[in-house]
Structures are given as C-alpha cells and as structure tokens.
Measured scan of single mutants.
Amino acid sequence: MVVWDEDGFQGRRHEFTAECPSVLELGFETVRSLKVLSGAWVGFEHAGFQGQQYILERGEYPSWDAWGGNTAYPAERLTSFRP
C-alpha cells in the first residue's frame, strides 16, 4: 500500500508492506490519499489501531470520501494500518 499526506496523491509518500501502528512515527501527521496495490488492508482513524476502521480493497483512494464517504461517522484521515 502506498500513502500520501495530501489529497490527490500529493505531498509526502510512503510505501507499506507490513502493519503500521502510527504514521506519526514516520513523520506524517495524517494520511489523506492512498493506493492499495494488492490484497486488502484495514485503515484506522487513530494510532494504535483505534477509532473508526475501514476495509481498503485493491484500488485508488484519492481523498477521505473515497474510503469513508458512506458512513455515519466518516474519518477524514487515517493514522494506522494493518494488512
């Protein structure tokens, strides 16, 4: 999975191949867009795999509404991930 700290695949970029309990440890404040290259990941609103969670299947997510636009409580950012 590849993530960016700005919408539209802009800004700082990082690629994950294993779980990440906090993007803050990588110098990111948040993740605002992402691409899942294969498989599925779970993205969490807060560090430590806490808060609202989203199943992220293979594909592109250019902004928060692409992963959470249909929920009652959409998270505008993700800060931890698990494959």
Rank of each mutant, 00 (worst) to 15 (best):
Q10H: 14
L24R: 11
R77E: 09
V31M: 02
L24H: 15
A66E: 15
R32P: 01
R77G: 10
G8M: 07
P21W: 12
H14L: 14
E15I: 09
T71K: 12
W67F: 09
Y54P: 00
L34F: 11
V2S: 04
R77L: 14
P21V: 14
S33R: 01
C20V: 14
A47H: 06
E60P: 04
L78E: 02
R58P: 13
W67N: 06
A66M: 09
A40F: 05
L37V: 10
G39Q: 03
F9L: 00
P62K: 13
Q50C: 04
G8P: 03
R32S: 04
D5E: 14
N70H: 10
H46N: 05
K35M: 05
S22F: 02
H14S: 12
G59S: 02
Y61C: 01
W67S: 06
W64N: 08
R32C: 07
E19L: 05
S33H: 08
W41R: 01
S22M: 05
F16W: 03
G8N: 13
L78Q: 01
L37K: 05
R13V: 07
W4Y: 13
V42C: 08
G11H: 00
L26Y: 15
G69M: 08
E45D: 03
L37H: 09
W41T: 04
W67R: 06
W4C: 01
L26P: 04
G69C: 08
F44S: 02
G11Y: 04
R58S: 10
M1S: 02
Y61T: 02
V3R: 03
S33E: 00
Y73L: 12
C20D: 02
W67P: 05
E15R: 06
Y73S: 12
A66P: 04
G8K: 09
S38W: 06
Q53A: 10
F16E: 00
E15G: 04
P21Q: 12
A47S: 09
A47C: 12
P21K: 15
D65H: 10
L34W: 09
G11W: 01
L37W: 04
E19H: 08
Y61Q: 02
T79G: 11
E76I: 13
D7Q: 12
G43A: 14
A66Y: 12
A40H: 08
R32I: 00
G11I: 00
E57F: 10
G69D: 11
V31E: 00
L24A: 15
L26Q: 10
L24T: 09
G39S: 05
R77C: 10
S63Q: 09
A47P: 11
E45T: 13
V36A: 02
A18R: 08
S63H: 10
Y54M: 08
L24P: 04
T30S: 09
E6H: 08
Q10P: 01
Q50G: 05
E19V: 04
G8L: 06
D7Y: 07
R32H: 03
P62Q: 06
I55Y: 06
G43L: 11
F16M: 11
E76H: 12
F9C: 02
G11C: 02
N70E: 11
L56N: 06
A47T: 12
P21Y: 15
Q10S: 09
E76S: 14
H14W: 12
T79R: 15
R82S: 07
L56C: 03
G69K: 14
E57H: 04
G11T: 00
L26T: 02
G27P: 05
E25M: 11
S63F: 06
E15Y: 09
E76K: 14
V31T: 02
S63G: 09
Y73T: 13
G43P: 04
R12C: 06
E6R: 10
G11L: 00
Y61V: 03
A47M: 06
V2T: 05
L26R: 05
R58W: 07
L24G: 07
A40Y: 09
G68F: 08
R12V: 05
R32M: 01
M1C: 14
E19Q: 10
D7V: 14
W4F: 15
G69Q: 09
S38C: 10
S38G: 11
G69R: 07
G69A: 13
L26I: 15
G48D: 11
A18E: 05
W41C: 03
N70M: 14
A66H: 07
R77H: 10
G59F: 00
V2F: 05
W4K: 00
W64M: 09
Q10K: 15
S33K: 00
V2C: 06
G69F: 07
T71G: 13
Q50S: 04
H14V: 12
G48F: 05
G51S: 02
E76P: 09
V3G: 05
S22N: 15
K35I: 05
F81L: 10
A66S: 13
R13A: 07
V23W: 01
G48C: 13
E76R: 14
L34G: 00
V2P: 00
E45Y: 03
E25K: 09
L24K: 14
A47W: 03
D7K: 07
V23E: 06
P21G: 15
E25R: 07
L56G: 01
V42N: 03
F16V: 13
S63V: 07
E25G: 08
F16L: 12
Y73N: 08
S33W: 00
H46T: 07
C20G: 03
G68S: 11
A40I: 12
G69L: 11
E6F: 03
A40N: 06
A18V: 12
L34C: 15
Y73C: 14
R13Y: 09
L26D: 08
M1W: 00
W4S: 02
E19M: 08
G8S: 11
K35A: 05
F49C: 04
G8D: 15
L78G: 03
P74G: 11
G27S: 07
I55H: 12
E25T: 14
V36F: 04
T71D: 13
G11Q: 01
T79L: 12
G68W: 05
Q53V: 06
A75R: 08
V42E: 05
C20S: 01
E57V: 08
D5W: 02
Q50F: 07
G43C: 11
P62D: 04
H46M: 11
R32N: 03
Y54T: 09
W64K: 14
E6D: 05
G68I: 13
Q10E: 06
